[in-house]
């Protein structure tokens, strides 16, 4: 029950962006399209979960005095690995997100959770906390980018990051030029 509450809290009450004001830099800069939001959100979730698990696994053998340097090395290594994987397999998304992938290293959410949660709890709890917080971050990115993409292009598009083909597009078009809006065209390709 307690685990479930922790998980839910990451979404609403302790939402990293809207509740704690963590990770605002990347949240504002890349939330222009849904694709960016999903890509960035899932990256952060992956790195946060992995770093939480590793830090929780080594929490008993980490000397207390130098724990922050250890956390920074672990996080930087994970981010470098994810960055290289993305450059290899998701070229478009990598180009769109640009420097913000490497700036995940200094994202306050990850170091904050490592220090506040993972260094004191077991591996399973830390992993759940990472997934909850990461999905909370993804959720808030989706909210912001949904509004921003719709205002900019009057459509929502979701693209497969591996081959850059769109899954589905939702376009708002005006049939009669004097009235607005008239219909929503939906194109779904699978």
């Amino acid at each position: 029950m307690n685990r479930k509450e922790n998980f839910i809290a990451g979404f609403v009450k302790e939402n990293p962006v809207f509740g704690l004001y963590l990770g605002l830099c990347s949240a504002l800069a890349i939330s222009t399209t849904l694709d960016n939001a999903i890509g960035m959100g899932l990256c952060v979730t992956l790195i946060l979960t992995a770093s939480n698990m590793i830090i929780s696994a080594i929490r008993k053998i980490t000397p207390d005095e130098i724990r922050i340097p250890v956390y920074i090395v672990v996080i930087a290594t994970l981010v470098s690995a994810v960055e290289m994987l993305m450059a290899a397999f998701m070229k478009e998304l990598y180009a769109n997100l640009g420097v913000f992938i490497s700036l995940i290293v200094v994202n306050c959410i990850i170091l904050g959770r490592a220090e506040a949660f993972a260094s004191k709890n077991g591996i399973v709890d830390s992993a759940l906390d990472g997934i909850g917080m990461g999905l909370g971050y993804t959720f808030s990115l989706l909210l912001i980018s949904g509004v921003r993409e719709f205002l900019a292009t009057a459509s929502w598009t979701i693209t497969n990051p591996f081959n850059n083909q769109s899954f589905c597009t939702l376009v708002l078009t005006s049939l009669n030029h004097s009235r607005f809006p008239c219909s929503i065209h939906q194109q779904v390709h699978f």
Binding site: E65, I66, I68, P69, I72
Partner: peptide, 17 residues
């Protein structure tokens, strides 16, 4: 190189504290 850099940071961190 990574070990040198990490060691330097850890040493400076410990010294600073």
């Amino acid at each position: 190189f990574a070990l040198v850099m990490g060691g330097m940071y850890a040493a400076l961190y410990a010294l600073n504290h």
